[in-house]
Design a protein around this nucleic acid. Structure first.
Lengths: 135, 135
DNA sequence: ATTAATTTGTTTGATAATCAAGATATTTGG
DNA sequence: CCAAATATCTTGATTATCAAACAAATTAAT
């Protein structure tokens, strides 16, 4: 258990470094790409929910979103029922960036698992499912 | 492979959120705790190496280290052979913080793996070992 | 139905984190 | 010995962030 814990910490650390270098190549900041990633994988959402998912305040997000809109990566649309809210969603350009980032991730996953046999991959997948559920 | 990739991304995301909330409780910033974590798990090192591991410039690190020294968490000692360098290391207080953070991590690992049978944990551990090696 | 409390998003002012470029001291390789 | 490389620090500017105050809309209470 102790060693598994250390391996998880090491894994997280290496994934962070990888993410940082991959993001740097896009020309956008880590926070900006992270925003795109969340919108890409969860779909359009309101400011509050997005801020919560990113772990920042809505005040900070307002500024971030303004920049991303100017970059043409996301768009704001009024919320249909709640007129206090606005929905934030990816533009086609934002979607393209998200897909590109996703391909990088997939390539990484393929790279780091290339020495795992099919059975291990199966157990690994099931284990991640269970672990993600317990967070 | 596609689903495993998504699970890894989700895992990373949840671990980030967890880390953020745990760090907030310490009263120190994410960057500061991260610095303590690296020093705690790898031992004393020079500024350059620490900056590289943290993914920041030495200029940024100089400021960060100054703060952590004032907090009493780390100490600077001259490098024995290279007089250009200084070694950064944890104080006893810094070590205590690192141990505390490590216990949090261990508890989390126990929590999220509680529905995994011993055999899966074994495969999971081996898989992480192999994946970490391929980064 | 009217009022009070809550929620949502924005703005503002202050602080913290970061980088790039330049300066200094030291080491390394010829 | 000297030029090039390395390690750290400093400075000036930019970016990210928060907390608090605000306005608009929704929800809850009476």
């Amino acid at each position: 258990m102790h060693s598994l814990n250390n391996l998880i910490i090491e894994f997280y650390d290496k994934l962070s470094s990888w993410e940082q270098s991959v993001v740097k190549d896009t020309g956008y900041s880590l926070a900006q790409v992270h925003t795109i990633e969340v919108l890409g994988s969860h779909g359009p959402m309101r400011m509050k929910e997005l801020a919560d998912r990113l772990g920042i305040t809505t005040g900070t997000l307002t500024v971030q979103v303004e920049k991303l809109v100017q970059f043409g990566l996301i768009a704001r649309t009024p919320h249909e029922v709640d007129r206090r809210s606005i929905l934030v969603e990816l533009t086609s350009e934002g979607t393209a960036l998200h897909k590109h980032h996703n391909r990088m991730h997939l390539q990484l996953t393929q790279d780091i698992t290339r020495h795992l046999d099919p059975e291990s991959i199966k157990v690994l997948t099931q284990s991640f499912e269970k672990m993600n559920r317990e967070f």
